Amino acid sequence: MAKFYLKFGILTMGVLGIISCKNEQEKVEDFPVEPQSEAEVLNVSSEPLITDNFTADPSAHVFQDKLYIYPSHDYYSGIPEDDLGSHFNMRDYHVYSMDSVGGKITDHGVALDVKDVKWAKRQMWAPDAAEKDGKYYLYFPAKDKDDIFRIGVATSDNPGGPFVALPEPIENTFSIDPAVFKDSDNEYYLYFGGIWGGQLQRWQNDTFEMEDAYPADTASALKPKIAKLNSDMVSLAETPRDIQILDENGKELTTGDNERRFFEAAWVHKMNGKYYLSYSTGDTHNIAYAVGDSPYGPFTYKGVILKPVLGWTNHHSIVEFKGKWYLFYHDSSLSGGKTYLRSIKMTELKFNDDGSIRTIDAMVSNDGIK
């Protein structure tokens, strides 16, 4: 889940794929990497999809010919705000679905509650879901009894839940923001990781350290993780690996490259044989994307999908539905800008002829005025 924390202790959090490649033979390196001009940026204004609950970090999938959305559930817990996101004390998940874009949205009720997860103590942040052989899997982060984030999994025979959690988290998982990608060969991959309150910076040599450890600004940035899932969908087939994100010269993005480097919220889609990794830059609040030839990467940075939104966090998902691509995201417009009371939204993605993604600016009101 996109959260309210900053790597450098700077509390200036600004507010706040997948690609339709026209030619399957087009090379990734031909995609432009220059920033788009303001004239090329798409200004959009979307209404919250859910108004009776505060929802964030939407993971969208097409199951049973419907759009299903798996968000986190914001609520006011009374915990004071801090850098580590303690006030994001989510305790359950709801699942939502719709038959068509703009159609009626069904709330399937509480899909999973922290009290029903034996190993979890608190803070059920951004989840994701997957389907295999008619069974549905809900992947979620939560803090265990030692206040260390782990990633759990729950199962159901229905995409809307309710889900039953396994008694232990997935072995060798840690940090936050699980996202599961199903490749065209029916292999499944788990992506995860988030910096600062997400604790990724505390994992050194596969061991959790109580003190934060960040690379120097000029060193390679901390990286998201990937591991192939076993056929049982509830265990890892390998030790999690780092994912390289490169600049236009083939160099790894550095810690100090705040506008482009990974912070949290990894999401992967495949289009025309290419893999698109999108993610939040966290303390600069962009949803950025990079392109590669393998689910493991390396991925080359290409640009910004979504500029900062109202609310100081940015977290998304991207899905194709009935021939069009859609971006799901959140902002704090419904709560008047409260960072911990967000609402999920969606908008159609637009593409340039070369397959690059049109940058979206969602910081507009209903009349189109920022």
Score class of each variant (00 low, 15 high):
Met1Asp: 05
Ala2Pro: 03
Lys3Arg: 13
Tyr5Pro: 00
Tyr5Met: 06
Gly9Lys: 12
Thr12Asp: 11
Thr12Gly: 15
Leu16Ala: 15
Asn23Ser: 12
Val33Thr: 08
Ser37Tyr: 04
Glu38Leu: 05
Glu47Pro: 00
Phe54Lys: 00
Asp57Ile: 00
Gln64Ser: 07
Lys66Arg: 04
Lys66Asp: 02
Ser77Pro: 10
Glu81Gln: 06
Asp82Ala: 13
Asp83Val: 11
Asp83Trp: 09
Ser86Glu: 06
Ile105Phe: 13
His108Arg: 05
His108Thr: 06
Val117Asp: 09
Val117Pro: 12
Trp125Asp: 08
Ala126Thr: 10
Ala129Trp: 00
Lys135Gln: 14
Ala154Pro: 01
Pro159His: 12
Phe163Arg: 09
Leu166Val: 02
Glu168Trp: 04
Glu171Asp: 05
Asp177Pro: 00
Tyr188Trp: 00
Tyr191Ser: 04
Tyr191Pro: 10
Trp196Gly: 14
Trp196Phe: 12
Gly198Ile: 00
Leu200Asn: 11
Arg202Ile: 09
Asn205Tyr: 02
Glu211Thr: 12
Ala227Pro: 04
Ser231Gln: 10
Ala237Phe: 09
Gln244Ser: 14
Leu246Trp: 13
Glu248Gly: 13
Gly250His: 01
Gly250Cys: 04
Gly250Pro: 00
Ala265Asp: 05
Ala266Asn: 03
Val268Glu: 00
Ser280Phe: 02
Asn286Pro: 12
Gly297Leu: 10
Tyr301Ser: 08
Tyr301Glu: 03
Lys302Ile: 05
Lys302Glu: 05
Val304Gln: 03
Gly311Glu: 02
His315Thr: 01
His330Trp: 06
Ser333Gln: 09
Lys338Arg: 09
Ile344Thr: 05
Ser356Lys: 02
Ser356Pro: 12
Ile357Thr: 02
Asn366Lys: 15
